[in-house]
Structures are given as structure tokens and as C-alpha cells.
């Protein structure tokens, strides 16, 4: 028997037009931009990353369910764009951690000192998954249960990794490389 594909009809999200992009930008533009600024520490590159997020939305948004593009989707996409850019940047030039610590963004004021260190000058040292963990914890202030849902980990794992992250930040601050 040859298996067939008989899919129940479910309309996809309609393609985004100019008005829909403008509306989403009004709701979420600055929120996404401040995340990009925090990650990239470069206002011009952050604005370019914001455009890239919306371009990815044009390309991939049809796979989203429901009428509204959730902020969490925009954040995840912004993070991927920024992580890609950080990797490219790192290949091209050495990272100046001291400069990263001196480049404040609007959101830095709302963060504690440990958060500023981890999300600032040490952020580039983390693998992507731990970068996301750091963002969800230090930046978004989400409780561990919700971080676990976002990352697909158990709550216990989230707790363990957060403790390890804090210890690592202390070691880095004291000058140890690993």
C-alpha cells in the first residue's frame, strides 16, 4: 500500500502585508530592539537585526498558529539573529570584554550587577543554550518553572544550570578563564 497524505484543511496564517508589519512594529518594535541592543551592544547593528527579525517573520511566519505573532517568537528569532551576528563578529575580531562592560544599554539600568556581568562582557563565552537561559533568568526575570517550559528542560536542570552559571560568573570575574 502506498501511503497517502490527506491533510485536514487548516488555513495558514495569511501573509503579512505592510499594515500588519507596521502594527506589529508598533506593538513590539522597541521591545525587540532593546533585546537586540543588549545582545549586540551596537545600536546600528541592533536596528539592522530588528529588520532581520521581521524579514524572518515574512519568511517563516506562516508556520505560526493563531492570528497574532507572539512576543516570545519575536524574542527567540531576535536571539537567533543576534547569536549569528555575534558568532560572525567573534570570527572577525577579538572580543574586548572591558569595552562590552562599558557599553551600557537602556535595559542595563534595570539589571543587577551579576546580571550585567553575565549579559554583558561574559555573554559571548556562553554556548547558545546557556545564553538563552541567562536571558530568560536575568533579563526576563522568569521563574524556573517557566524557564523549564521555554527550554524544554526539567525545573531541576534549570536550577542546577543557573547555579553553575552564577559560579562561572564569579570565577570569570575573579579572572579565571574557565
Amino acid at each position: 500500500m502506498v501511503p497517502g497524505l490527506a491533510f485536514p484543511i487548516k488555513p495558514p496564517r495569511p501573509p503579512l502585508d505592510e499594515a500588519a508589519i507596521a502594527e506589529l512594529y508598533r506593538r513590539c518594535g522597541a521591545l525587540v530592539l532593546r533585546r537586540c541592543r543588549l545582545l549586540l551592544r551596537d545600536p546600528a547593528e541592533a536596528e539592522d537585526a530588528l529588520q532581520e527579525v521581521f524579514m524572518r517573520l515574512l519568511r517563516y511566519g506562516a508556520s505560526l498558529e493563531g492570528e497574532r505573532v507572539p512576543l516570545s517568537w519575536l524574542y527567540r528569532t531576535a536571539e537567533r539573529c543576534c547569536f549569528d551576528r555575534l558568532r560572525r563578529r567573534r570570527r572577525e575580531e577579538p572580543v574586548d570584554e572591558a569595552a562590552l562592560a562599558r557599553e551600557p544599554t537602556p535595559i542595563d539600568e534595570a539589571l543587577g550587577s551579576e546580571a550585567r556581568e553575565v549579559l554583558g562582557r561574559f555573554f559571548h563565552r556562553l554556548p547558545d543554550k546557556l545564553k538563552r537561559l541567562a536571558l530568560l533568568h536575568y533579563l526576563d526575570g522568569l521563574p524556573q518553572e517557566r524557564i523549564a517550559v521555554e527550554l524544554g528542560w526539567s525545573r531541576r536542570t534549570v536550577g542546577k544550570k543557573l547555579r553553575a552559571l552564577a559560579e562561572r560568573a564569579v570565577r570569570w570575574k575573579s579572572g579565571a578563564r574557565t
Binding site: I21, A22, M55, R56, R59
Partner: peptide
């Protein structure tokens, strides 16, 4: 917003996506 949206659509149309 209108300028931003037009710019995104133009970049996407130009294949810069």
C-alpha cells in the same frame, strides 16, 4: 512604522532575506 514596513518588504523582495 510605515517606513519600517516598506523597508522590510523591499529588502525581502530584493532577495536580501
Amino acid at each position: 512604522p510605515a517606513t519600517f514596513a516598506a523597508s522590510v518588504l523591499a529588502r525581502a523582495a530584493s532577495g536580501a532575506a
